[in-house]
Nucleic acid binder design. Structure first.
Length: 285
DNA sequence: AAGGTAACCTGACTGC
DNA sequence: TGCAGTCAGGTTACCT
C-alpha cells in the first residue's frame, strides 16, 4: 500500500498528536514483523518524550529522548501497515485483528496494524551514529519533494545516474536508489504523465524527457498527498480516513480501459514480478 | 557491479 | 461450499 504519499499523510496525521508527549509504554502483541521488534524497546522507552516525527523515503522516524532512550524509532508500513491515533480511555477502540503494537503515550494511543507483517519497527540509538547511516536509510536516493530534486537538478540527477544502465526506467524508479518514495502505483502514473514507456532503457532516455519525468514525480506525489493518498484495499490515514487519489489514476489497474487522454486501451506488463500499466500510444520507449 | 529471482505473510478474488 | 491458484501498495538476501 503505502508509497511516499501515504506515508507522508500518516506522518502529518500522527505528528501533532505525539510530538512533545511522554511515552508510558510500548505494548508488543506480535513482534514478528519483517524483522523482530527489539524486545528492549519496551524497557527503554517508558518515560521518554517524543521530540520529532520525520520521514525518510517510506520510513517514519520518531525521535525519542529519555533517561534510557536517546534515539529514533524507525517505523515502516510495508504493504499493508497503518498507524492510527486514538484518545486513551473510554473511547479507546477494542483490539482488532493484526493490531500488533501500541505506543502508549500520556494521553494518546498510537496503534500499528499490519495484516501481512511486511512492515517494521526498529530502533536506531544516537550512539550508533547519524541516523542517515542506518542500514535501512543509507542507500536511499534523494527526497523527491526536497530542494535536491527541484527544477533541473532532479532531471539532471536522473539523467546522470542512469547513464550506462540497461535497466528499465520503471525498475530504476522502484529501486529507490536515485529518488525515493515512488512505488508501484506512482511509477506507472508518473511515467504516463511523462510520456515514457515503462520498459524504456533508463540509460537511453534523453535529458529533456527526464525533465518531464522529474516534474511528473513532484506533481503526482504532491497531489496524492493533498488527496490523502491512495486507498486500494485498506489504507487509512492516522484518523482512519481513506485516501482518494485513486480517482485520479490514468493507468494503474486500468488494463483494457480507455486511456483518459487518447482512448487507446491501457495495457499491462510484468516487470520484476510487478504489474506495470501504460498507454501504448501516449508512452514511447 | 549490475541485474534477476525468491522470500517474507495474510486476505481477497477467480475458476473449477 | 470448498479448494487451488493468483495477485496485492515493499524491501532484502542471494544467486549469476
Amino acid at each position: 500500500m503505502p508509497e511516499l504519499p501515504e506515508v507522508e499523510v500518516t506522518r502529518r496525521g500522527v505528528a501533532p498528536h505525539i510530538e512533545g508527549r511522554r511515552i508510558d509504554a510500548l505494548v508488543v502483541r506480535n513482534g514478528a514483523l519483517r524483522w523482530p521488534v527489539p524486545g528492549m524497546l519496551a524497557d527503554i522507552l517508558p518515560g521518554a518524550r517524543v521530540q520529532t516525527v520525520g520521514r525518510r523515503g517510506k520510513f517514519i522516524l520518531i525521535g525519542c529522548e529519555g533517561e534510557h532512550a536517546h534515539g529514533t524509532l524507525i517505523v515502516h508500513l510495508g504493504m499493508t501497515g497503518t498507524l492510527r491515533v486514538h484518545q486513551r480511555g473510554a473511547a479507546e477502540p477494542a483490539l482488532a485483528t493484526h493490531d500488533h503494537v501500541d505506543l502508549v503515550l500520556d494521553n494518546t494511543l498510537l496503534r500499528y496494524n499490519d495484516p501481512r507483517r511486511f512492515g517494521a519497527i526498529l530502533w536506531h540509538a544516537h550512539s550508533d551514529g547519524p541516523i542517515e547511516d542506518n542500514r535501512h536509510l543509507r542507500a536511499l536516493g534523494v527526497e523527491p519533494l526536497s530542494a535536491a530534486f527541484a527544477g533541473e537538478t532532479g532531471a539532471q540527477l536522473l539523467y546522470r545516474e542512469s547513464r550506462g544502465r540497461a535497466v528499465a526506467i520503471k525498475q530504476l524508479l522502484l529501486g529507490g536508489h536515485v529518488v525515493v518514495g515512488v512505488g508501484n502505483i506512482y511509477a506507472s502514473e508518473t511515467l504516463f504523465r511523462a510520456g515514457i514507456h515503462p520498459a524504456a532503457a533508463a540509460g537511453r532516455i534523453a535529458l529533456a524527457r527526464y525533465v518531464r519525468l522529474a516534474e511528473a514525480i513532484r506533481v503526482v506525489l504532491a497531489l496524492a498527498i493533498d488527496k490523502g493518498g491512495s486507498t486500494l484495499r485498506d489504507f487509512v490515514g492516522s484518523d482512519g480516513r481513506a485516501g482518494y487519489f485513486q480517482q485520479e489514476y490514468f493507468v494503474y489497474d486500468r488494463e483494457h480501459e480507455a486511456c483518459r487522454v487518447c482512448a487507446t486501451p491501457i495495457r499491462a506488463l510484468r516487470q520484476g514480478q510487478r504489474s506495470s500499466f501504460y498507454c501504448p500510444r501516449c508512452q514511447r520507449r
